[in-house]
């Protein structure tokens, strides 16, 4: 069994303590005790575990239980023996069966021939299956289930998403109510505005055109950039996702990200007529995408 994280164990213990009205520490100790190999040694030395002891010590009247719960008596018996054999605890005494003291000391696998006749299935120690093959772990998709701290999507996530949708809708609505989308004069093939700029998300590339040959700036740099971006997962072999152990990857990405942002801002606000350098605060802004704000 996978090791449960401490905080999950603690939460489960708290919930159980609340339900059963017992102290948290006691339940926590009990849960931790179960996952350790302690019970095996405890039953071997003859001292039954506290939980199992309360069961096996009492006298069970299977006839009464059978009528009370409407379960056939032989099923109750089988369940009792199976439980005893699985836990390695003594079989509880039955009303009208052997003396309680005798069965309480005997461990289940060695319970004697009288019990073996009652318990269905193969005798202890006999394996009814055989090993055909061993399948190596590790599939294409991660299918191992680690115990994870999870919450219900409804209401926790859907409520957040709904608020995010409303906020975005409200923001867009108010923006659109006060700011009109630009519509300049009718398209005129004979009159090129100065400067002519691409949409803002291409202005980083247009800025590169001012430094390099068009083939380099317009095709080769963005082409290689895009390819590099797509191949990140296959180049970055570092399995960690912790920022402290990915300093190089994060630095490199941040340099390129900031570079692209600076080029785009530069192309948007610091380029004027003839795509020459301007200071936006003294020469004016030549950026038609934001015409409505600037006017």
């Amino acid at each position: 069994m996978a090791q449960l994280p401490d905080h999950l164990l603690k939460r489960a213990a708290e919930a159980r303590a609340k339900a059963e009205g017992r102290p948290v520490d006691e339940i926590l100790a009990e849960m931790k005790g179960e996952s350790s190999p302690a019970p095996a040694t405890a039953s071997a030395s003859g001292a039954p575990a506290p939980d199992a002891g309360s069961n096996s010590g009492s006298l069970r009247d299977l006839d009464a239980e059978s009528t009370q719960y409407g379960i056939p008596k032989e099923l109750l018996e089988r369940a009792m023996f199976a439980r005893a054999r699985k836990d390695g605890t003594p079989v509880p005494a039955m009303a009208g069966a052997a003396a309680p003291a005798a069965s309480a000391t005997a461990a289940a696998p060695a319970a004697g021939p009288a019990l073996a006749a009652v318990v269905s299935g193969p005798p202890p120690g006999v394996r009814t299956q055989r090993l055909l093959t061993v399948v190596q772990a590790g599939a294409i998709q991660g299918t191992t289930k680690e115990p994870a701290d999870k919450v219900n999507v409804w209401p926790h996530l859907l409520a957040i998403e709904f608020v995010a949708l409303l906020a975005m809708s409200a923001f867009l609505f108010i923006l659109s109510a006060f700011m009109d989308a630009p519509l300049l004069e009718f398209a005129n093939f004979n009159e090129q505005p100065n400067p002519s700029k691409a949409p803002w998300y291409f202005l980083g590339l247009q800025e590169l055109l001012a430094y390099f040959d068009p083939q380099v700036a317009g095709v080769i740099i963005p082409g290689f950039g895009l390819a590099a971006l797509a191949f990140i997962p296959y180049v970055d072999r570092n399995p960690s996702v912790r920022p402290s152990s990915r300093k190089f990857a994060i630095s490199l990405f941040t340099v390129f990200f900031m570079g692209a942002a600076v080029l785009t801002i530069f192309g948007s606000f610091f380029r004027g007529p003839g795509f020459n350098f301007v200071f936006p605060w003294s020469d004016g802004i030549f950026f038609d995408d934001l015409l409505a704000i600037l006017e």
Partner: peptide
């Protein structure tokens, strides 16, 4: 929109 902004931005692009 087929205005000056649209035509020349697309031309540049």
């Amino acid at each position: 929109p087929w205005d000056q902004l649209a035509l020349w931005a697309v031309t540049v692009g």
